[in-house]
Design a protein around this nucleic acid. Structure first.
Lengths: 232, 232
DNA sequence: AAGAATTTTTACGACATTTTTACCCACCAA
DNA sequence: TTGGTGGGTAAAAATGTCGTAAAAATTCTT
């Protein structure tokens, strides 16, 4: 897949600031999606799976810290908090809830951009995992850096969901993952009641990756529990 | 493994601030090492290999941004910058050079601590796997984290109830558990009147785990009372 | 706005697990 | 002996879970 623009979700109730962020970020080659309220924002974050979340703490419908905690329940995406109030305790609460950075209004847009770059740098560079960037078992090879999957050297095309599912499984290779855990990581928190998707995509992955899909060597079913990627 | 204190190197030329940081951080259980100049700081960082670097930009001997770049040449350790100047361009330069955060003096110490926690959180992402609970008795191995059971290295497939039953037994290994206790933990409070299930599943477990199911080494019957998992 | 790729919905046969039912043994007391 | 108790194993029946194909709806590209 071609190098696509980073996706940012902005949760901000104040229309002028929202407009400002949207246009400014767009001109710097970010794909921006917006939400006015905390609830909307959570949905948007779950659906868009952004590379970064920008969150205003002063929302009308729910506490910003609750939004952060809720997102952290299923994702480690970078969160940058904006706030009009410079109360120190509030900063601490937001950061401890899982926010990665905190800017007090008014802030310079250049600084925001720099802090966005920092956040994206963090997310894209789990530097310790450099050696695990390419996952190989027998004939199966998953190149996480380039997002290329191959079997016996033949490149296999995977759809976004198929690929994400495979990534989740090999990230926890050897471990049995429950349906809910997988659904949460792949589809987001709102899809936790649909183990059916899982069976369908698991089947598709087996067709593409296993030499005998009816008797999988890697993508194992743990009936009544979930799935696991077998290693060793 | 003893939980060791995070190591922090502070590069700061102003003695009062340095003293303040040293004592304050020390009381929050950090191991603090100090340097007065950029050159000293680079050496200190290289020798101590800290979990975090705190850097004042206004050093006498070299530009703070150069210090950052130099560290980034060989390490991805978190760097938090402190600065008296709130010039935006300087912030941007420092962040783009590789700093992870930037605080303008005067700052609240609580906020600094919170931002330190954020930075350490980033650095130790893969530390979720700290809780490895693996029970091993002779050839039997129960990996609770991965939900995998093996005998002599051969994986054994257990159904949900079989697995739950085994977990209950090894959780209270050595103790005698009554039928009722086990039924309650495995099937839930409403099934307490069916010791028969227990015999069936206990038999299945023995078939799968014991080398001689008719004379079990681990899954022992306490006649008239219940069962127990024998250890030692 | 049309066409391709992908995701979601729908449907149904196959499979695995749990529960029920049945029969076995060993032991002890009447 | 006979009958009762506590326990073990092996099968059926019932239930719940999985896998696959294909159609419908959506999203992405052009």
């Amino acid at each position: 897949m071609a190098k696509t623009h980073p996706v940012i979700v902005v949760i901000e109730d104040d229309p002028p600031i929202r407009r400002f962020l949207r246009t400014s970020l767009a001109t710097h080659n970010f794909a921006v999606f917006e939400a006015e309220t905390g609830k909307q924002g959570l949905i948007e974050a779950g659906v868009r799976k952004p590379d970064l979340l920008i969150l205003d703490l002063g929302l009308p419908d729910m506490d910003g810290v609750e939004v952060i905690k809720s997102v952290r329940g299923w994702s480690a995406m970078p969160i940058i908090v904006l706030s009009a109030r410079s109360n120190e305790q509030q900063k601490i609460d937001a950061l401890d809830a899982g926010a990665d950075d905190y800017l007090t209004k008014p802030f310079g847009f250049g600084e925001l951009l720099a802090r966005i770059r920092v956040a994206l740098r963090h997310a894209s560079r789990p530097a310790e995992h450099t050696q695990d960037e390419v996952f190989i078992v027998d004939a199966l090879k998953v190149d996480l850096r380039n997002r290329v999957v191959s079997v016996d050297g033949n490149e296999i095309h995977l759809t976004p969901i198929q690929y994400r599912l495979l990534c989740v499984l090999i990230k926890h290779a050897g471990k049995v993952l429950t349906h809910q855990q997988i659904l949460k990581e792949v589809w987001g928190p709102s899809y936790q009641e649909n183990p059916h998707y899982l069976r369908i995509y698991m089947s598709q992955l087996r067709q593409k990756l296993e030499s005998d899909p009816t008797q999988p060597k890697y993508l194992l079913t743990e009936s009544g529990v979930g799935y696991r990627f077998k290693v060793g």
